[in-house]
Amino acid sequence: MKYIFDRLRWPDGLRRLWHRMGSPRWFYETTGPWVPWLAAAAALLIGVGTVWGLAYAPPDYLQGDSFRIIYIHVPAAYLAQAGYILMAICGVVLLVWRMKLADMVMATVAPIGAAFTFLALATGSIWGKPTWGTYWIWDARITSVLILLFLYLGIMGLRRAIERPEAAGRACAILAIVGVINIPIIKYSVDWWMTLHQPATFSVTSAPAMPPIMWLPLLLNVLGFNLLFAVSVIQGTRTEVLLRERRTRWVTDLCRQERA
């Protein structure tokens, strides 16, 4: 894969950017100024989306006001899957290019993705009580999300168990790649096992069944949660960079500046 990649003709600028991106210091210094802007945009989008969804969107004709949980449930469920895919992509980058930064991102995403998976499960379960009359039902989607949570916990456990960070990173990369190939298989097998479930709310291929006044706040919240995810991953990776590079001169200098 690296062989093919190296032999493709990339524009010089792109190739330089790729190599610079491998540098944790470059990441730390470049992303610093982004954080406040991203955080502000995330707060604005989530604020508008949530207030709109909670107070102004009309109630669902079938589920009443309990459907308003959708405005946090769908973004969380979406980020739970996106986080795992991001980890697997970082795993490929780490194994192929030995890029240390990819491992730092991977280490940061695992607990954040697990938190969103937990959130998707918890809000889904709370939503289930007024809808199905019970907190837990072995519905296909809930079951696959539960298995996804186990996959996240496995990766976090593996990283914790291996002492040397380089070995831990590469082991987690392999597990993430095996896991990401398995996720669609798990999803389809569970779907097939249990055909009793609601169709996906937010499909890209067909127009949403909800009126715009109901799905626009959802769109805002999905975008906002995406930015929130980006903010937390960037912040976490920046901290991870400092911790792993604490013996280098630039981090020591940074600590001296912080002291002044």
């Binding site: 298995i147 496995g154 456990g157 593996l158 168990a161 291996i162 597990l175 398995n182 097998s189 096992w193």
Partner: peptide, 27 residues
């Protein structure tokens, strides 16, 4: 193979592989 060098292998191994077994079980 991932847990071969670890002292706390057993339980972690179960956590790592059991979720991956799900499709086989179902089919």
């Amino acid at each position: 193979a991932l847990t071969v060098g670890l002292r706390t292998g057993g339980v972690l191994l179960a956590l790592l592989v059991l979720p991956l077994f799900v499709p086989v079980l179902i089919l």
